[in-house]
């Protein structure tokens, strides 16, 4: 199944989803796709004006362009996802997209889709980390 991860660039969540036999939907893949396949030169991420306009599907013109550009990447992934994993309050080195407004909207879009999802708290010690991985494992194994 296709599992969207939030934060969408978390390498740990990406790895966990893959390990338990599912396809992670992440920023890495979307940006890689843009850099490899799009014949545009808009470094560093090849996000173009057109992408920002596409983001209007998720947020009106009054919402800043950076939010809309981000949503143009993740919105379609959330639409495609069969399930989602949300890590609550992670430090930014766990995975971060730099914008709280975008984060709020991503969580809302997941909720709006009504797909199976799990929200786990960021662990603060080894014990909690084991419990968090256990929760995620159980969730991923339960997906059919």
């Amino acid at each position: 199944m296709k599992v969207f991860i939030d934060p969408p660039n978390s390498l740990i969540l990406f790895d966990l989803v893959e390990r338990f036999g599912h396809e992670p939907l992440s920023s890495m893949a979307a940006i890689q796709n843009k850099i490899d396949n799009v014949e545009v030169d808009m470094p560093p991420m090849n996000l173009t004006l057109e992408d920002v306009i596409k983001g209007l599907k998720y947020a009106g013109v009054e919402v800043p362009s950076g939010v809309r550009g981000r949503l143009s990447l993740w919105g379609p992934m959330i639409e495609e996802a069969d399930a989602a994993i949300i890590m609550l309050d992670p430090p930014f080195n766990f995975g971060c997209v730099g914008c709280e407004r975008s984060n709020e909207m991503v969580k809302y879009l997941i909720k709006r889709r009504g797909i199976p999802s799990i929200s786990v708290n960021y662990p603060n010690n080894e014990e909690e980390a084991k419990a968090t991985v256990g929760q995620i494992k159980e969730f991923l194994e339960g997906l059919k």
């Binding site: 947020a59 009106g60 009054e62 919402v63 800043p64 939010v67 407004r101 709020e104 909207m105 809302y108 709006r112």
Partner: peptide, 13 residues
């Protein structure tokens, strides 16, 4: 308020 991003998101939803 005009130009509040968070409010614009909530308003539309």
């Amino acid at each position: 308020c005009f130009r509040c991003a968070e409010a614009a998101l909530v308003r539309n939803e």
